[in-house]
Design a protein around this nucleic acid. Sequence first.
DNA 1: GTGAAAGCGCTAACAC
DNA 2: GTGTTAGCGCTTTCAC
Lengths: 348, 348
Amino acid sequence: MAVTMRDVAKKAGVSPVVVSRVLHGRASTVRVSPSTAERVRQAAQELGYRCNVFARSFRDGQTLNIGILHGIGFARPVFSQGSRYFAALMDGLIEGAFRHGYSVTLCPKLMGGSPAEGINDGRFDGLVWYSTMPVEENLRMLLASRVPLVLIHTPSSLLQDRFPSVRCDNVGGIRLAIEHLWNLGHRRIAYVTEESTPFMETQERIAAFRKWMAEFGAPVDESDILACPGSRHAETIDRYLSEGPRHTALVCQHDGVADAVIRRARLFGIRVPEHLSVVGFDSTAFCDEVEPPLTSVSQPLVNIGSQAIDLLVRCIRGETPEPFDLVLPCGLDVRGSTATPASHPKVD
Amino acid sequence: MAVTMRDVAKKAGVSPVVVSRVLHGRASTVRVSPSTAERVRQAAQELGYRCNVFARSFRDGQTLNIGILHGIGFARPVFSQGSRYFAALMDGLIEGAFRHGYSVTLCPKLMGGSPAEGINDGRFDGLVWYSTMPVEENLRMLLASRVPLVLIHTPSSLLQDRFPSVRCDNVGGIRLAIEHLWNLGHRRIAYVTEESTPFMETQERIAAFRKWMAEFGAPVDESDILACPGSRHAETIDRYLSEGPRHTALVCQHDGVADAVIRRARLFGIRVPEHLSVVGFDSTAFCDEVEPPLTSVSQPLVNIGSQAIDLLVRCIRGETPEPFDLVLPCGLDVRGSTATPASHPKVD
DNA sequence: GTGAAAGCGCTAACAC
DNA sequence: GTGTTAGCGCTTTCAC
């Protein structure tokens, strides 16, 4: 077995408290003479003693560990495929956690179908939950959380204002996309969405799209919202493209969708951006990798992750973070997937 | 505070052991009458009791948690930038861990400059260490590990055969790259390496390159090995390219290097693959994203991660995995970055 | 200056 | 069938 404080104490001829005091500086009421301290250190060294952080955490009732919750109904997150959405978010979460001295744990219980028992199992000082399409079941479980929790992509109001939240300004982001396309001369613009749940960012972006298109003077109807059901969106995209796109530009729910659209378009001989402009959402490094480079609304994902942890750590400390609902601005990274439409003159 | 077994016991009018027996099925010597069991369940339900897994782990002396060790001298791994090497490896590690019911933890202590104190701190049932360029200091720390450990990219022999290992067949992989280029007609082929440490895969690949080039009948010398010092490899690449490449094809240490080469080449008006063929190493999804798509030796990274966990779990169970040193074969994914050299006829 | 006691939440072993 | 004891490794409290 591992060598414990008791072993060190025995060897040094003192009690465990003294060892705690000397080696970890924790038993603050205890005073130790320099010579004893030296003896303890010596013994620890010789035995190769290492503090059992796990035992300490158990006693302290704090684990210095943050759990990542993944929405139910999603598969376990994958880093190596698709757009870099999750990768960027994780980078932010890890950066933030490390900065505060916390570990980050991916736990099968928290990422499986039923995180309920994982949430309050004592291993986590706090949790981060991100989901772009929460379902009622999710929300109920989260409300049962006894540990501090921060929401990403989901406004606090959706969970009775019990947990702070971080998300981006979807409305402003969509406006940037439309404005950009509009200025290039596009008038027939569609929105492509992957899935659709009754609330949240998906809907927020669609609503923003409707709103701004109307304000720009080109109100849209149902046929301008392309909804691709989760599993088989290539199919939906193909159907749309095969009839020859009715629009000159597409705004996509996220970069993965935009990438899919571009790849399918290529198969139909539709060139981007010459025949069709495409705008993504997230603007991770992925956008620079694909061809053509993807014009995309930038959501500060790394920052969102990092700031979510800042909020979480405050909650763990018992504070009430201020602001409680963090909305970060979006930008627009113009790359190569958007251009003046073939049939329209450029407008300034 | 959280509700504990004692609270439930009290409410149900029984002792904690009974609760343990009923709710977790753990106190196997204890027999409980159906009616008592029901009372306990009722009480637990009403109080919203959740088993404190942390406390249980403490008692059991097993955490069901695996720590990921990142070589010293590296920065903390980043998912959202560069090639998808780390992403793919992590996907495999997570998949394997989840399959066995283990969590995966990224801990600042294990990823910082001095993981020594993190290694034996009781929080991990096992560790996975990956590093493409270990230094002596790394190795000494690893040898001090009291918990099971699996090496990725590093043969067991480098650590006194104390830990099992997983890596790919670098020699075979490099052969595939050379063979492919040779068949296309390339004869002047260079190897581009990012960093160089006295041992390990970097050296193994370089050695393999020398060996196979000689066997194919085109022995190389120092000037055919392009070594780019870690921080500023763009500079080294630029210097090489600016003189007009002396070779018709480059084999690169990994996809990130290959990508860098291609991007720099573009700035010099050197087209890939028309003027210069480039082969990467790893062949993650990254290769399909870049332009041109990158021909690359495929290293089964996801599989390596997954199998590393299989080995680790066996060690945790006290078994000695067989085989102890796992070497997985490489493949070659031919994409768009390699072609017949301009100056050479195609050879079959 | 130093040590003894007590307890974090859980469960194996044993007693009744 | 059910309860008591004891202990995982650590640290706080308090007594000496």
